[in-house]
Structures are given as C-alpha cells and as structure tokens.
C-alpha cells in the first residue's frame, strides 16, 4: 500500500521552452496534417502567435521533467504496474512555440479500490507562462497502480 503521507507533496518545479521542432515532431507523431501545426506563417495566418502546441502536448513537459519517474521512485512503484487512468486539461490560453513555461506538480490524493488491488494517485499540475506569470494550462492525471497479489477474494 502506498504511504498516504505523500498526499500534498510537490514534485520539483521544471522550467522549459516550447520548441518548434518538438511541436512539429509531436504533430507528425499524432498524424496531424493541418498546416498551422507545422508552419509558422500558416499558424499566424490562422491567428496564433506561432505554431500552437496541440491540446494534449503539455503532458510531454511532464514526461520531460522526469516527474513521473521521480514520483514512482519516491513511492516505490515499478513502472510495469502503472496504467494511466484519467487525464484532463483546463485551458486558459493556447501555448505556442517560443513560450517559456514552469510546470509545478503536486500529489493531491491517493486512494484504493477493489480491496487494495488497485490504488489511484491523483496529480495536479499547473503550467505558468514565465513572461506574464499567467497560468496557461492546468492538468490532472490519475495514475492507476496494479497490485495483483492483493486481489480481494
């Protein structure tokens, strides 16, 4: 069972720049073809400041930050036991190439279901624009941890 004292703890803050090349690579990987997701002029013509980060791209920042590894390591959970249960994003603006952001993540809940065979870790994150101090995106992840040996009879 995961130690509940981790609830309320934060992960190390992570600052990064949203890079054009990475956005193009991500857009290609998800099969995106609309020109504004690849080309700066097309993005500006569509009304964006630069190439926009697709709606789910900012999870990449979470991955790059190492937050998931740090979290699993801190909680002593092997990665093969982990599934992604839920994910949500709340948008206050569209993040674009060139933006510099800070990611801050906090463990906000840990709970069990099915007699402890499954545990759930809730992580809430904010992405704040470093230039304006404005929160651009909030993210919530629910991570499912499988404990097969503890399956209730």
């Amino acid at each position: 069972m995961i130690d509940r004292s981790h609830i309320g703890t934060t992960l190390p803050p992570f600052q990064f720049e949203v890079e054009k090349g990475r956005l193009r690579f991500f857009a290609k990987a998800i099969g995106e073809t609309r020109p504004e997701y690849f080309d700066e002029d097309a993005a500006r013509a569509a009304g964006y400041r630069s190439i926009p980060a697709p709606p789910t791209f900012l999870m990449a920042a979470e991955m790059d930050s190492g937050a998931t590894e740090i979290l699993l390591d801190r909680l002593g959970i092997p990665i093969e036991r982990v599934l992604h249960g839920e994910q949500s994003f709340t948008y206050h603006g569209v993040v674009c190439a060139g933006d510099r952001l800070e990611l801050l993540s906090r463990i906000t809940d840990i709970y069990a279901k099915k007699g402890g065979a499954l545990e759930f870790i809730v992580k809430d994150s904010t992405l704040t624009d470093l230039a304006s101090g404005r929160c651009m995106v909030e993210m919530r992840s629910v991570i499912v941890v499988r404990h097969p040996q503890e399956t209730a009879a």
Partner: peptide, 21 residues
C-alpha cells in the same frame, strides 16, 4: 480524440478536455 475535437471547434475554443482510459 483531440484532433477530432479541434476539427469540430478550433483549438482556441477549448476550455476543458478530459478523458478516462
């Protein structure tokens, strides 16, 4: 699913997007 959503309403329209896997 995000591509599907932004084909219907362009990305600046998005306020919230969440899923259960």
């Amino acid at each position: 699913l995000g591509r599907y959503l932004t084909h219907w309403a362009p990305q600046p329209c998005l306020r919230r997007f969440g899923v259960r896997f």
